[in-house]
Amino acid sequence: MTDPTVPRAGITARGVRRTFGDVVAVDHIDLDAPPGKVTALVGPNGSGKTTLLLVLASLLVPDAGQVSIAGFDPVTEPRAVRARTGWMPDVFGTWESLTCREVLLTVGDAFALPRAAAAARVDHLLELVHLADLRDRPTQVLSRGQKQRLGLARALVHDPDVVLLDEPASGLDPRSRIELRGIVRGLAAEGRTVLVSSHVLAELDEMADRAVIVARGRTVAVEEVAAAAQARRTWRVRALDLGVLLAALDARRTPHPPPDRDGVEVELGSDVEAAELLAALVRDGVPVVELAPASGVLEQAYLALTEDRR
């Protein structure tokens, strides 16, 4: 039975644990992914991301913990979960001799979608992932990135409410990555719940609304990307004349480490402080070329939390 206190949409995982023999893949993960938002699942290799997604995709029974996908329990109500969940695995094959279009139509059949509606949606999805011109080619001719895009389309065939993407950007060229970002944002804007696992952190800054950081199979932090941008972090300042810049910083008593070749890093409390610093430097006549975060929002948080990499 569904717990009425659990929201009817989105993903909720509480205390999920999963072991394989004596290997603890997921130790204790708590995760919330609300609908209409993109939630990033971030963590080092072997931190249990893929195993957690397999649990969410109703393929593995957790040893302990509660999971709810769109209000349903994947262990006791797997069919209800599957009808509402699109899962793009990290490593997957395709039916090599089938064409792109046939692959997607087969998945549509497997979800018992009405044929005509499925065909229209499949054609649109092929456009969306830029495989329309390869639609009648067998998938064995696809490159790795193209297969990845087909995998994304495959996860979306049945119009799922919840989308699980495991390393969707791996193998994609820069343009495809940007397009992926657009698609993922679009899925969330349509009210779907999107959970993306990745370790390309810079990309997640722009794609994700929230990030759940896991390490050694445990949830170590949950970051709101917008809030994290307001946190104290390192910024990099570059000017045409480094000497003038350093003098201005010293005059403002802004602490800074020794400069490198053409710039210097400063610790700033928030975006507001950064704006103030920039205004002040310009007022002081410093020829500022660049003032930017030294690293991504998530990268900062991630590196701080996962030093004990294994």
Partner: peptide, 18 residues
């Protein structure tokens, strides 16, 4: 947002357990 396009008017929505 980049839409994912043609939404399905009807799709099988099994609920309940089993």
């Amino acid at each position: 947002p980049a839409g994912t396009g043609v939404l399905l008017a009807e799709r099988p929505m099994p609920g309940g357990s089993g």
